[in-house]
């Protein structure tokens, strides 16, 4: 049997109303053979983490173009920890100033993929990070 596809939840949190980028990413991951759950716009960190746990995803991908990443990502990390989802990879994407990337990594983001990341890089990083993760 072929191995189960990688499962990814692509989420938009907060007031950010632009999801073309998130949809492009979802489509690229789909075309790379992954199962992609998309939550739609304007979700809360609580909704996103609850959905990621119910869907038992390998990767939670959060897209942010609003500038609220240093408010929302810590909240998501905290909720993931509370829920015992430490084995789930958090990948942040979108419009993020370079100087904020180390802070997001320090919080626990497995990677931060900025808006100029080519689709192949995103697919490659997701595969690489999932493969490197401890088996569940």
């Amino acid at each position: 049997m072929t191995p189960d596809p990688i499962r990814v939840l692509v989420a938009k949190v907060g007031l950010d109303g632009h999801d073309r980028g998130a949809k492009v990413v979802a489509r690229c991951l789909r075309d790379a053979g992954m199962d992609v759950v998309y939550t739609g716009l304007h979700r809360t960190p609580e909704e996103v983490v609850a959905a990621a746990i119910q869907e038992d995803v390998d990767v939670l991908g959060v897209s942010l173009l609003s500038g609220a990443h240093l408010t929302l990502i810590p909240k998501i990390v905290e909720l993931m920890r509370e829920a015992g989802a430490g084995d789930m990879l958090l990948i942040v994407g979108g419009v993020i100033p370079d100087e904020d990337v180390p802070a997001l990594r320090a919080l626990g983001a497995a990677d931060v993929l900025l808006q100029d990341s080519p689709p192949e890089t995103i697919v490659h990083r997701v595969r690489e990070l999932v493969a490197a993760r401890q088996p569940r």
Binding site: R30, G33, V37, Y38
Partner: peptide, 17 residues
């Protein structure tokens, strides 16, 4: 590709909590 977009949840987001 064998991949999928699972979008049914979008209609049920408010049930998640």
């Amino acid at each position: 590709s064998g991949g999928a977009i699972l979008g049914d949840r979008i209609r049920m987001n408010d049930l998640a909590l």
